[in-house]
Computed example of a mutant assay.
Amino acid sequence: MTNTSTVARGGDSFPAPGRRRHAPQRPAKARGLSPRAVPYVLLAPGLLVIAGLLLYPLGQMIFISFQKVGIPQINGKKPATWEGWDNYTRVLDNEIFWSSLRNTLVFAAITVTLTLVLGTAVGTLLNRLGKKMSTFVVIGIMSAWAVPPVAQGVIWRWLFDADAGMINWALNLLPDGLSELLFGRSDWTGEPWLNDAFTIYLVLIVCVLWSSFPFVAVSVLAGLRGIPAELYEAARVDGATPWRIFRKITFPLLKPVFSVLTILSIIWDFKVFSQLYVLMGGPNNREAFNLSLFSFAEAFRSPPKMGVGAAIAVILTLILLVVTAVYIRQIVKTEDLR
């Protein structure tokens, strides 16, 4: 019997007359997230962690700053009472707050400037070293950056100790004439560096500078490695001085790096706490308080006033936000003018 469903012609098979050929079925669309939703889904776990570790404590701090929280409230004997803006009024009427604010601003301005200048100079020098020597020096300076803040305070407290510190010992080794010429004195035995607010902050600046400039130096070194060497060769051929090369080539190309480093340095230096606490041996000298130490002293020193301490922390956070926002706005304006 002959099959009439198809007719073979030249090796091809054709449908028989009167029968319709079915169109090939299209594959079904895969069901899933839209491309626009994928980034948000991937970021969701990180945002939840940030909310749990940062936003929730921040909200609690703001909430406590409007309450009266002391020993009875901590022990659960009395509920926290609502104070409204009274905690902030007490803070702003306190003379220690204004001296702490002055110390914080002056210290941050000096330390940020010195950190950026020294870090940039060291990073530029590292860029001129060979690969092996540069790696060796980077490992050496980064070991200082990796030291925990409390250990930094312990190291420099020991170095500037009045009785057994190496700084007094080293200064006593200077010739009397040179010491008199430079410092106006020749005997440094028993010099109490950590008793006066001015000298405490001198030691604190050295301590923070020692631990902060390596990060800036390595960041600048990484940026310099990305600048084409042809630009520097062309500038040298034209007779440009090293300072002019830095102003016209290095600084403009590394401006984004310097902007990030400046913002990070401002944030870090505004809220220095551990090093100052260790150098002072606790919140003892009120004249040497910064805002972080003042907040700690009000919140935890007897009698504890956690509402007032939280109010100081909120004010410090707002100052940091304002300073950072103003700096970022200036950066954006500069970029728009270009």
Rank of each mutant, 00 (worst) to 15 (best):
T6W: 09
V7I: 12
G18E: 01
R20A: 14
R20K: 10
R21A: 12
Q25F: 11
R26K: 15
A30T: 09
A30N: 08
R31L: 10
P35V: 08
A37G: 04
V38P: 01
L47I: 14
L48D: 05
A51E: 03
L55S: 10
L58V: 06
Q60R: 12
S65P: 03
I74G: 02
E83V: 02
W85L: 15
V91L: 07
D93F: 02
F97Q: 00
W98F: 08
L101P: 05
R102P: 03
V106W: 10
A109F: 15
G119T: 08
V122F: 08
T124V: 13
L126N: 04
L126T: 10
N127H: 13
R128D: 06
R128F: 12
K131A: 09
K131R: 12
K132W: 11
F136S: 07
I141K: 11
I141D: 12
S143I: 09
A144W: 11
P148R: 04
W156A: 02
F160C: 01
D161Q: 13
A162K: 15
D163Y: 15
A170Q: 01
L174Y: 01
S179C: 13
E180M: 07
E180F: 03
G184E: 04
D196F: 10
F198G: 14
C207P: 00
P214E: 04
V216P: 04
V218T: 09
A222T: 13
G223V: 11
G226M: 04
A229M: 05
Y232M: 06
A235N: 03
P242M: 02
R244S: 14
I249G: 02
F251K: 04
P252A: 02
K255V: 07
S259K: 09
V260W: 04
T262N: 11
I263Q: 10
F270T: 07
K271D: 04
M280I: 05
P283Y: 00
R286C: 01
A288W: 01
F289S: 02
S295I: 03
A299P: 06
F300M: 07
S302T: 08
K305E: 08
G307F: 03
A310W: 00
I319T: 14
I319G: 06
L320Y: 03
L321T: 10
Y327F: 14
T334V: 10
